[in-house]
Amino acid sequence: MNKKIAITQKKTPFSIFLHKFKQRKTAMIAGIFIVLLVLIAVFAPLVAPHDPFKVDYGSSMMPPSFEHPAGTDLYGRDILSRIIYGSRISLAVGFTSVFVGALAGVTLGIISGFFGGFLDGLIMRTSDVLFAFPGILLAIAIVAILGPGLVNVVVAVSLFSMPTFARIVRGSTLALKESLYVRAATSLGASKKRLMFVHILPGTLSSVIIYFTMRIGTSIITAASLSFLGLGAQPPTPEWGAMLAESRDYIGVADHMTIFPGAAIFLTVLFFNLFGDGLRAALDPKTK
């Protein structure tokens, strides 16, 4: 037998996942768009046709044209360029806040599920309290304490992503703790730290990854909402939500000011959600 065939026939969990994921066309396309979006954000200065901060009162609120494909805003700034620079903020805020929330939530969830008892009770009751505030209200309260600004928005959004991660991981940890391979590792004398982070953690990751992807969309919307309400990014920062706040007073006068920045949020979140759906379907052992 030829060695090459033997390798391709070997079915690792990852190759099964890849096979299933490739069947989900919409998720694949969404994934490609996300990569494209990240590239646009990274190379914003090269991609943007104009300087996003350049004020030109002579061309205030111009409708879309060849020169300005998405038109200009009140100060004559090029909206397309502002959207392109805005992608940096939205992607960074979305990703960072979910990452911090996941890191803290996963750690707390494993500790909670593994040790049980008092620690478990404490962590779960705390997350109950966090759940008692609807996400955006919690964020508003935190921003009210810390003051408006993007960093505080990240803190707020991380904090309310945390309890869900903790719950998901706690659930999987409880199940995995009783599994045969963890018991085997215990009987071989593995330390608690090793059991938690080498044996149990990888088993919880698939649900964490799914939720992570789904959460990025929600976080981008929440961050944009806070900026729209005037609590996040402050002008003249080219943030999508803040741009929409500026457009509010010119509805019916300059519709393009509302349409384009909002479409940017919508499409970005849509791609993350479609991608997350595909991941869920591919990682779910029940689907073929």
Binding site: I221, S225, F228, L244, R248, T258, I259, G262, F266, L270
Partner: peptide
């Protein structure tokens, strides 16, 4: 519907 920001939908 899940992906659309409410404030944008409202403005539209």
């Amino acid at each position: 519907g899940i992906s659309v920001p409410q404030f944008w939908l409202g403005l539209l």
